[in-house]
């Protein structure tokens, strides 16, 4: 159950973090700093999947000491991110309302 909830949330978190260009490891570090725990084995395949469905653009660069693949939100990804963010806000508000109603009924 928790995994399913996290899976959807992670996609949103990754899309949001990739509003600015990043490579795999830097993205993971940023997510960790934001207290979003995600292991490498989940994150890196997820980025590739998002890229393969056109939500991310990627580019290989040699300028760094190592060759790295940089990812950034694509145009389509930006639209999807906006929609998902709205959905997330609505869901979150609905859940809070539900919890508040439950608490009020308990108190009564």
């Amino acid at each position: 159950m928790r995994q399913e909830l996290r899976r959807g949330m992670l996609t949103l978190a990754v899309l949001r973090a990739l509003a600015t260009e990043q490579y795999g490891y830097s993205l993971r570090k940023q997510l960790n700093q934001a207290n979003i725990e995600i292991d490498e084995g989940t994150l890196y395949p997820l980025i590739r999947r998002l890229e393969s469905v056109g939500l991310l653009d990627s580019e290989w660069r040699d300028s760094d000491p190592r060759r790295r693949r940089y990812y950034k939100l694509s145009e389509e990804g930006t639209i999807v991110l906006e929609k998902l963010t709205q959905e997330w806000a609505d869901l979150s508000a609905a859940l809070n309302n539900l919890a508040a109603t439950g608490l009020a009924e308990d108190a009564a």
């Binding site: 490579y23 795999g24 490891y25 490498e40 890196y44 590739r48 190592r66 060759r67 790295r68 693949r69």
Partner: peptide, 10 residues
């Protein structure tokens, strides 16, 4: 290629 880069970074 990508995995190699990621492992090197880690």
């Amino acid at each position: 290629k990508e995995l190699r880069g990621l492992l090197d970074d880690e």
